[in-house]
Nucleic acid binder design. Structure first.
Lengths: 118, 118
DNA sequence: CGGTATCCTCTACGATACTG
DNA sequence: CAGTATCGTAGAGGATACCG
């Protein structure tokens, strides 16, 4: 599925692409359905997590992917990035309230998946 | 995102690939998150719909895509295909109870998307 | 009508190496 | 540690034409 963020004309900052699909479920899926996205958000719901720790938690996703998804989530205001210290640099990510609201919306999906052993 | 169905060794019938991700939300998204999938299912929840009608309803998706998603949904037992008549051939698709249960699980996502004007 | 077949493009995703 | 750069590939997805 297509990425949601693009660089602006000069390649400077990242911009969120609006989704124009008429069906709201479809739009919702596009917003949250990217590979690893829900999983990443899930791991950030309870405590702030450092980048490499997160990457390790999501076994299977490369750092590049984790990074990319995190940037999307940040642009979507679902995740907040905090720099704890430079040199040695330390960064943590955590789900915002909005991000948590997204997760709560996915909770039924979680139950459903488990219930049917999928 | 990768397709969920593959041909068997001899290219005969289609087989459902199991998803091995540990996170149930992630798995759920993989099951339902493919492009157009939720949207298609949505249109089949109330009445049976014929193939071409469906393709027209999902403006933007090619027949090929609609066909592909329908086959996945069928393999997942979320949609039932019924041949009404040959020559002229007529086929309808409708959501099974299981398919409807999947939709009900996505209902909160729908509300959430609308509430936040996404 | 309900699909297939073909061709093509694009980009998501992965592996690896590297940097401040 | 927290990323970025680079490169390579598979396959998702689209356009169009065709078929029984």
């Amino acid at each position: 599925m297509k990425s949601l963020i693009k660089s602006d004309t000069k390649g400077r900052k990242k911009v969120l692409e609006p989704c124009l699909e008429p069906c709201p479920i479809e739009r919702g899926m596009r917003l949250l359905g990217a590979k690893w996205k829900a999983s990443i958000l899930w791991h950030l719901k309870d405590q702030p997590v450092r980048f490499n720790d997160l990457a390790r938690m999501i076994g299977g996703a490369s750092k590049k992917m984790v990074d990319q998804r995190l940037k999307e989530l940040e642009a979507q205001k679902m995740v907040k990035r905090t720099v704890l210290s430079e040199r040695p640099i330390a960064v943590v990510y955590q789900a915002t309230d909005f991000g948590k609201s997204a997760l709560s919306v996915l909770e039924p999906l979680l139950k459903w998946t488990e219930k049917h052993h999928l």
